[in-house]
Design a protein around this nucleic acid. Structure first.
Length: 432
DNA sequence: TCTGGGGTCCTAGGACCC
DNA sequence: TCTGGGGTCCTAGGACCC
């Protein structure tokens, strides 16, 4: 059976989610900002057409935003995560095998399909997703994941494809690869793009033509795989069940610079609590915690400082209290007065499943049991009434701490919080 | 003044061991 | 003055992804 992959990718995903609940945004240039309203992380086609680039800092595009009345929104991850789940649910129900690749993308295994059937199936799927969720998508089809990616990119770029492009045909493949710049190939970032260009390789078609062994020697196995995939030899397979996580982290840029240790301890406690919650949610335990803090990398070198401290736990744990203690110990060691800190975070490593945990001779069984009950109760309460309803004193009690991120234009959590449920009127506005 | 967050994988080099 | 070799493990840094 010839392998065939489809890549379903939501168009301008975050912006599309916002538009579902605010159709007035349709046709307008819209951008969604990163945490702290720092950079543009999603752009509508109109915003792209104005020249707003991915991850452009807001302060640099301020003039453009004002002149063209670009709508700027803070990111609303609760909404995007929920909308993503709805899209994926449709795929799971309709496609033979699905690999959720990111919040807005999934690979499908279409190996059983004839090429024309695959295209028709994807057109139908696209339509279903749109009418059931309001989210527009594009689909690329190819004999390898990398070629499906190429196809998807072209489907997005060229409306005449009707949102679906099938690159099963070799002649079409060549045409497509000739139209694709080297930096637009999946797996080729800015650095490699530059190095390849220095060798005179500037298109995907040229990259397909180079000797894989040469690439292996000059670059690495990852890029060699990319070459083979472009040649139509599948190196990457479907990963329908996600591999176990290796790390979990929470970090934030502060809304304003922080100089004192006190608020940093509070911020790090909050990040630790959040990370521990994720850890428990995944049924995992950690035995290594890293805490880090830094000034801005854009500061003058003499004002820059960054450091991290890694601590080992005597026993694997997912207890917020224990983890906060370690994080605080680490932070106190790396904190230096006199700097204007911009960011801090917590990283949990050496994760094991709670099922494979083995107590040792010195394990405090009563203590562990108590902790499990306490954490379970906390998670239940916060799940029911919202995150932070019940928290550790170390996290602070202010609803607007000095280190807090700013998110000035956040839309409601339309689909995940009862109070935020949108109201729909059957009559016309002037009758209200 | 203002510049995101959360991941994975590969490689080179050092430490250590026999 | 001459000063082995091979294997493994760990870590930091660099590259990529969305």
């Amino acid at each position: 059976m010839t392998p065939s992959f489809a890549l379903v990718d939501c168009n301008n995903f975050y912006v599309s989610c916002e538009r579902v609940f605010n159709p007035a945004l349709e046709g307008w240039p819209v951008i969604v900002l990163s945490n702290n309203d720092g950079c543009a992380v999603a752009r509508s086609n109109e915003a792209k057409a104005l020249g707003i680039g991915m991850a452009d800092p807001l302060y640099k595009i301020r003039a453009l935003v004002n002149t063209h009345r670009v709508v700027t929104l803070s990111s609303n991850y609760a909404l995007y995560a929920d909308m993503s789940a709805r899209v994926m649910q449709i795929l799971e129900a309709q496609a033979p095998a699905v690999e959720v690749y990111s919040i807005d993308e999934a690979f499908l295994d279409l190996s059983g399909f004839k090429p024309s059937k695959a295209t028709a199936f994807c057109r139908q799927l696209r339509q279903t997703i749109h009418s059931w969720t309001g989210i527009p998508t594009c689909v690329g089809i190819g004999p390898t994941k990398t070629l499906a990616k190429v196809a998807n990119r072209l489907a997005k770029k060229h409306p005449q494809t009707g949102g679906v492009l099938n690159l099963t045909d070799p002649a079409l493949q060549t045409r497509a690869l000739n139209m694709t710049e080297i930096g637009d190939v999946w797996g080729i970032g800015r650095r490699w793009s530059k190095r390849l260009t220095a060798y005179g390789i500037t298109t995907a078609a040229q990259l397909r033509g180079v000797c894989p062994t040469w690439v292996r020697k000059r670059f690495n196995v990852v890029l060699q795989q990319t070459v083979l995939e472009l040649q139509g030899k599948p190196m990457l397979t479907m990963e329908t069940c996600p591999p176990p996580r290796k790390s979990i982290t929470t970090s934030r840029t502060f809304g304003q610079r922080v100089t004192e240790l006190e608020p940093l301890l509070e911020a790090v406690a909050t990040f630790t609590a959040k990370t521990a919650e994720k850890l428990r949610h995944h049924g995992l335990l950690t035995s290594t915690l890293t805490v880090f803090l830094s000034t801005s990398r854009f500061d003058r070198p003499e004002l820059c400082y960054q450091n991290a401290q890694t601590l080992s736990l005597t026993e694997p744990s997912s207890d917020t209290n224990t983890l906060i203690h370690h994080a605080h110990a680490g932070l106190t060691r790396i904190y230096r007065p006199g700097y204007r800190y911009q960011k801090a975070g917590v990283l949990l490593l050496d994760l094991i499943s709670i099922k494979s945990y083995q107590p040792n001779l010195f394990t405090d069984h009563t203590g562990r049991e108590k902790s499990t009950h306490l954490m379970r109760a906390m998670d239940a309460l916060n799940g029911r009434w919202g995150r932070g309803t019940i928290r550790f004193g170390a996290e602070g009690i202010s609803s607007q701490p000095v280190w807090g991120s700013s998110a000035r234009r956040k839309t409601p959590a339309y689909t995940t919080r009862w109070q935020d449920l949108p109201t729909v009127y059957a009559d016309s506005p002037d009758q209200r």
